[in-house]
Amino acid sequence: MQGVLTGFAVIAVVIGVGYAIGRRGSLGDQGGEVLTTLAFQVATPALLFTTLARADLSVVFSSRLLVTALSTAAAGGAFVTVGVVRRWGVGRTTIGALCSSYVNAGNLGIPIAAYVLGDASLVAPVLLFQQIVVTPVALTVLDLSGAGEKGALWQRLLTPLRNPIAVGALTGVLTSATGLHVPGPVMEPLTLIADMSVPAVLLAFGIALRGSTAPGRGRDRHLVLLSVALKSLGQPLAAWALATGVFGLHGAELLDVVVTSALPAAQNLFTYASRYRVGESLAQQSILLSTLLSVPVLVGVAALLG
């Protein structure tokens, strides 16, 4: 328990440093964006590759992946059901369903897994599932619904292969599966680059907190509150029920799946909403509110299950 709280404290301190940097303007107006781009395009793919290339794939592709898939479907499906009944429209309902179930495995999941759970590869199942299954399905639905500017269907289906984080994860999995040995002169610089991922992400997140507006206002208020309730409480509860009642997980395995399911909505969902010009306010507010609520939720999960 003390180790878990220490891990959260480390993360909070680095985020606080990022917030202070943002307040002072030490990195200029584009500092947070540069750090985010560095982490997304370079450091995090390197971290996932170096971690998964040496990982035990029986841990990655295990019952944890099924718990992730089913809890995601439960939370997203609940929002879709309400959206259909209330006639919120395909576009807004799709964005709301994503905000209810698509966790921030890349930006917050990796540092939390590294510092709290002790193994960055533990977010690999949810990261792979979201990039390989959830993202193509959701973007295809948005394309077919006519939201935003329509693009070629094959381009949407190949979205994961243009995502550097997904490429890093898949390459690492393939390296481990084939037993390929990566020589030291290649692995060592990749490891050095990978070490930038966690601090860059946390500093950028802290910088982004400066000037954030209060969520829960406007025409999408009810959609925001529903998506945040499902993301912050519904999905982790579903993961806990599935893990204990169906798959018989306990101890560290149970903590892993519930913590990852309790992560807030991913920041890239706002990018999807902006691209299709639908549910932008819903995505922005849901991400911010679920991120703020994730702190007490994650601490509570760690206290109960750690």
Rank of each mutant, 00 (worst) to 15 (best):
G76S: 10
M196H: 02
P160V: 08
M1A: 12
R24E: 10
R221L: 13
L117V: 06
A69G: 05
T44L: 15
E280A: 04
Y272R: 11
V82T: 03
T260S: 02
V224I: 08
L305T: 04
T171P: 04
G106T: 14
S294G: 14
R219K: 12
S197D: 15
P264G: 00
L158F: 04
A20L: 12
L203K: 05
V17M: 14
V173F: 04
A20T: 06
Y276M: 05
Q235H: 13
T191H: 09
L66D: 03
A78C: 15
G306E: 09
A262L: 11
T36H: 02
I165H: 11
A302C: 04
I193Y: 06
G146F: 00
D143S: 14
L52Y: 01
S286E: 11
V297C: 06
V141C: 01
L52P: 04
K231C: 06
W240L: 10
P164I: 01
G83D: 07
A75H: 08
L47H: 07
T159W: 08
H222Q: 13
A243G: 01
P136A: 09
Y276V: 05
S281A: 13
K150L: 00
R275F: 09
G89M: 06
V186I: 15
L233M: 11
G234M: 11
V301C: 05
A283N: 11
I193C: 13
A194L: 07
A194M: 08
G22F: 00
P189K: 03
S290P: 07
Q267L: 07
Y102P: 12
L98C: 06
V116S: 11
S290L: 08
S286L: 08
W88H: 15
N268Y: 02
V82K: 02
T135E: 10
Y115I: 13
I193P: 07
F8E: 02
A238Y: 10
G77Q: 05
G148S: 08
S101W: 01
V173C: 04
S58C: 00
A75P: 09
L38D: 04
S145T: 01
L139D: 02
T140M: 07
V182G: 10
S176E: 06
V13H: 09
V34Y: 06
L304P: 09
Q155M: 09
F205Q: 00
V278G: 00
T175R: 03
G28W: 05
G216D: 05
E149A: 15
D195T: 14
V60N: 07
Y19C: 09
G148I: 03
A105E: 12
A105P: 05
E33M: 03
S290F: 06
L170Y: 04
C99G: 09
L142K: 00
L289T: 03
Q2C: 01
I110F: 07
L108G: 04
L298S: 11
L304Y: 13
I132T: 15
N163Y: 00
P185F: 14
L180Q: 08
Q2G: 03
I21C: 14
A241M: 15
G300R: 08
S62N: 13
A266I: 13
M187Q: 10
V198W: 05
Y102W: 10
V186L: 15
G16F: 07
R219S: 15
N268I: 06
V134F: 03
G3C: 02
I95Q: 11
A12M: 08
A75Y: 06
G89S: 07
V224R: 02
